[in-house]
Nucleic acid binder design. Sequence first.
DNA 1: CACTTGACCTGTCCGC
DNA 2: TGCGGACAGGTCAAGT
Length: 295
Amino acid sequence: MPELPEVETVRAGLAQMLVGQRIKSVNNDWPKSFPNDPKVVRDKVVESTILAIERRGKALIIPLSGGYSLLIHLKMTGQLVYKPNNSDAGFGGGHPTDSLIHSLPDKSTRVIFELTKGTLFFNDQRKFGYVKLEKSKDLHKTNAFLRKLGPEPLTDDYTFEMFKTALQKRHNTTIKAAILDQTVLAGVGNIYADEGLFAARIHPSTRVGDISTTKLKRLYNAIREVMTLSIKLGGSSDRNYVDAKGNKGSYLKFAKVFRREKQPCISCKTEIKKIRVAGRGTHICPHCQKLTTKK
DNA sequence: CACTTGACCTGTCCGC
DNA sequence: TGCGGACAGGTCAAGT
């Protein structure tokens, strides 16, 4: 599910509700969902206080009092949903009747954190995601996943030059594979790759080295615009994704190509096609996104 | 080193 | 209705 906009939406929701709370207990049934030694987890996590909720690329980082942090990756189907202790009535508190919160825990619940004022559920149908306990000190350098991540694309200091320079090391591959590469920039996944490439009118199979600077500049802007809009709309709920309150996001109502195969292109009415690029299902308008090559 | 493919899992959908 | 296969928003380890 979750690409940068979805993870950022979860982060913002959790930050409102969890910061300052104490963790009373931790339980997990599937060891790979929380691979640390359960005794160590109990020792370092229980009785600690949540200091902040941070995001890096598609990962969440929760620093705790006591010098440790939770590093969480939702991968394809992870969810982090918080249920306040007083949410039983099912109304108010930002929990519409179709919120996932009313059926928690469920069969995909992997980890349960009991907090002072409520319960945090880590759900993950496909079990690809994880919660890991890490030392907070220099976490961005000591953790192998975080260390390799490229720059955050939505910060003010992320420039076109940074984008262009990072792409040069992937000049021989397709532009779609290149922007999905988390070492080039952090946070783009399949949805925003397709939406960004459509907005920039670039065919996903185009070789990076064959794209003009003008078009790359369009893509740089498009990726930032598409993800910024999605954050405003609470992210994309294609299948599993929900925010920290268990509610779906609405970005896909505004998506131009993603999951719109067989529908007319909003720009030229040509039928949207679904193809395969970089091993991923890929959505294009064959008329607006023509494949071009140099020489 | 750059790049591609399969594996990790469960659930759903589609064709026979 | 049942069954097999393909596929799903991500990353990593292997292979070429």
